[in-house]
């Protein structure tokens, strides 16, 4: 047995153990932490498969921001799972068995692990993406050129999904607002979020915060050369901002970025993306055809287009994540 398969088997075993433990736990805070562990192990498995961009996204979204959002939700509700009667669990068991069985049956049709003659490797499109993209787009990280250039319309769809999710959360929880001045001025502890009286964490997170934001910008603009891009950068930026809100209190965080600015940023990213597509159409190309941005020099045009698109993605993702956190955390405890 090679070391590679040994590591894979160990990680998959940890994954299964974590999943089983999550289903057996009633304490939801612990379950949230284990869900983060699940994402971390998944990210390790993606690294072993050489899918660094996917691993990066899994680590940033699954371990970072979604854990914080789940904790924010738990602060609003009870943190213990209600007991379901044994009889009423049967439909759930049936659904799980049905879906699991279907997926297991479908996985029989997949090519063997690492098979060289699988469609992914033998299809002529692979050649286009892996080799011609180096000349046509001129970016070392093929994932970025596929994501932002070849499949730019799909990525626009993904961004619309993120936008819609943010919109749905805000329309369910009500618009972001400041505290009404009629309430007593006593500083209200915002659920469990008020860490501002811990001096150590205030100093350390205050010192680290600029570097977190700098790292987000690095991930954004380095996405053409290494793993990373707009989605990961947006999530890291939002994590830094959420950290600020957790440590220094929500009111101070909302003074840094007022609601109106956050709202405009949510739509700004999407508008820049669509606007770029419109601009390429006005310049005589098709929707999101970056070649026309720099006439006579398609590689420069592609470069420019991908940079604008990644920045647009980063803006919308970061502001949507921050908005979702603010709408949960701003509601205070209501049980």
């Amino acid at each position: 047995m090679t070391a590679f398969s040994l590591i894979n088997i160990v990680l998959l075993a940890i994954l299964v153990a974590t999943a089983v433990t999550i289903t057996r736990l009633r304490a939801l805070y612990e379950a949230a932490m284990l869900a983060a562990l699940f994402s971390l192990v998944t990210a390790c498995l993606f690294v072993l498969l050489d899918a660094l961009d996917v691993a990066f996204t899994e680590a940033a979204v699954g371990v970072g921001i979604s854990t914080v959002l789940i904790l924010g939700v738990l602060a609003l509700t009870r943190s213990r799972e209600a007991v379901t009667q044994r009889r009423r669990r049967l439909p759930g068991v049936a659904a799980v068995l049905l879906v699991g069985g279907t997926l297991g049956y479908a996985s029989l049709d997949l090519p063997a692990f690492g098979a060289a003659d699988s469609p992914v490797h033998s299809h002529p499109l692979t050649e286009v993406y892996l080799h011609q993209s180096q000349e046509a787009v001129g970016i070392p990280n093929t994932v970025t050129s596929v994501l932002a250039s070849y499949r730019g319309l799909d990525t626009l769809g993904e961004l619309v999904v993120v936008f819609t999710a943010g919109l749905a959360v805000v329309s369910l929880l009500g618009p972001l607002r400041r505290r009404r001045p009629t309430r007593p001025e006593r500083p209200r502890p915002i659920a469990d979020f008020d860490l501002a009286d811990y001096r150590v964490i205030r100093v350390v997170s205050g010192g680290l915060l600029p570097f977190v934001l700098l790292f987000a910008l690095y991930v954004l603009f380095h996405g053409e050369y290494g793993p990373g891009g707009g989605f990961q950068a947006g999530v890291i930026f939002a994590s830094g901002f959420v950290l600020y809100g957790l440590v220094f209190g929500l009111d101070r965080a909302q003074r840094v970025v007022p609601h109106a600015a956050l709202w405009s940023l949510v739509t700004l990213g999407l508008l820049v993306y669509i606007g770029l597509g419109m601009a390429t159409m006005l310049l005589g190309g098709s929707f999101l055809d970056y070649d026309v941005l720099a006439p006579g020099n398609p590689a420069t045009g592609q470069h420019l287009g991908i940079l604008v698109v990644e920045t647009a993605i980063g803006i919308t993702v970061a502001s949507v994540m921050t908005t979702i956190f603010f709408s949960f955390a701003g509601r205070g405890v209501s049980r």
Partner: peptide
């Protein structure tokens, strides 16, 4: 920087 802080908290 972060690990001692987390333990402390």
């Amino acid at each position: 920087l972060t690990s001692p802080t987390a333990t402390h908290i």
